[in-house]
Design a protein around this nucleic acid. Sequence first.
DNA 1: CAACATAATCTAATCGTTTTCAATAGGCAA
DNA 2: TTGCCTATTGAAAACGATTAGATTATGTTG
Lengths: 331, 331
Amino acid sequence: MNITIKDVAKAANVSVATVSRVLNNKNNVSEEAARAVNRAVEDLGYSPNFLGRDLRKSETKRILAIVGTTQQSFYTDVLRGMQDAAYAEGYDVLIATTRDNADHEMHLLGMLFSRAVDGVVLLAPKLDSKTISDLSKRFQLAICLERLDVNDILCVTIDNERAGFDATSYLIAKGRKRIGLITTKVRSQSSVDRENGYRRALKEAGIPYDEKLVYYGDYDADTGTKGCEELMNLESKPDAIFSISDTISIGAMTYAVRHGITVGKDLLFFGFDNITYSHMFIPRLSTVEQPCYLQGKTVVEKLIANMKTDTPDKSTYMLPHSLILRESTGD
Amino acid sequence: MNITIKDVAKAANVSVATVSRVLNNKNNVSEEAARAVNRAVEDLGYSPNFLGRDLRKSETKRILAIVGTTQQSFYTDVLRGMQDAAYAEGYDVLIATTRDNADHEMHLLGMLFSRAVDGVVLLAPKLDSKTISDLSKRFQLAICLERLDVNDILCVTIDNERAGFDATSYLIAKGRKRIGLITTKVRSQSSVDRENGYRRALKEAGIPYDEKLVYYGDYDADTGTKGCEELMNLESKPDAIFSISDTISIGAMTYAVRHGITVGKDLLFFGFDNITYSHMFIPRLSTVEQPCYLQGKTVVEKLIANMKTDTPDKSTYMLPHSLILRESTGD
DNA sequence: CAACATAATCTAATCGTTTTCAATAGGCAA
DNA sequence: TTGCCTATTGAAAACGATTAGATTATGTTG
């Protein structure tokens, strides 16, 4: 039914080997044969079946990016970086979502075990680090935007502890003494790191840590709104709030603005990620920017390099972040 | 080097055929053999190579969703719908981005020609409709969230003309007479349809169409800001602005708020898509909601059904939309 | 002109599965 | 015992490409 390389060979009056050579622009083929093959390909509307090719070559030239959800808009830049690096080496990048479910993440990793892709980049691993670390011994696997609490896997991220420290320290430098934190119940390593940075900043400034000032929720705007409400209902209210994502921060600011609190003065806000809306929202949100594009590009470059060697690079790379200061911190 | 079905067969002391039967839970295999095979699989850590399987079966059980960018946050729900429908039938959904480039869209469609996936759903086709329509004759291809100006391809969307009409009519019903439109230079069918709906609403209300009130830009918040600025600098300013996306609307509202214009009174805004931030932004944005999850679910269900039949469904399905009224229209 | 290198081509093996078809073993009825 | 049916099993042929190695044709050199 389908047109195969055999049909092309017959039509062009050559062997399948010759067709294959033409299609892969190998040098040792006469112009005449090439012409005949190309005409046959054209006439028949042939396009090679990659299942055959991939099986024979034992490679697919495809990399899978596994994300929790496509909701996080800053993934866009990460993926762009991944694609640019991939295309430069003749690879395609596919994306799949786990919907933050570890079982499903494992299911998708099945594409790696079953050789349907050559490598995988995990953008928000849900599986425990032991499992991931074990798998990375047998397969081409890397982490991006996160890190594991083990260090035997290729990993490109930022120094989230330092970033949390920097953001909190900035609020302290602005004279704030009671700084709230809104973070996630789910303990991703980056959340933990950011929280640790927050604590260290307090400590180094001699401000006692107050667990009442920390609100744990989900990774969404609603959490910000609820978190802000709860913190502002404390006897001793915060004078600044650091959130581990802009989405949360915006939700939190929404509460503040709607309750007549002057953001940037009565209450400062610091977010994380520098999403598009963070400078759209009124007031504009101060935030930590991470090099999304560069992280994506780097992780794929390193991963592809690993595919070509038998002494794979299992380092953790921490790229530099920066603070973006806007109205929400009175700048 | 790699463990294949042969190794398992040898370890279990059976033939490869038996291993295959066990792995695919065929009935005609003795319990004893099954046990032996399962133990061998376990011992060797074997997982089948899908390249072999897919080649033999001529199917991959994978569907590719091709999007322009993952930036559009409402895709998340569409993809969720697609996944639910797919998993129910044993398929996986992969995502790839074209970065709004037609050539790259064609490149990704190569995965369909080369049988690396069983079907494709285009979420924002850039290729011309003739090309797509031709391809859909030979491959399993469907469109979602958009439609083509031909109707011989499976297509699940909403009635964008009607939606544009409804939104504009609502603004007219609110007593507005000079209604601006911010839309995209790039003429996707949905943009054209929404604009046509806008025009028809004006016409039916006896309001003359004024091309000065229409601003063409990109699909981003900046366009909204610039568009709003331009429209508000007109001699005869608009008293309401309909944008073909919430992202644009939010950008436009930002301009208004920053320039002391009372949104919901001096100037009404109507958006499109009901993205998360549309009710986060202050004031809250009125918008057209489309059934994202349902569209995704439907298109994949129909596509998979098409794979099973030789009389494929090439209909266009238009699912119902609704208006969400919030502060930006004074509700 | 023999001998040999080179270029172009073909034949057939190979990748790892699934599946057809034939073969075997065991049970049961006649 | 013989014949027949059924349940398991295995050998081998697909699937569609790439590629190593054999083969042929062509040109070059001594």
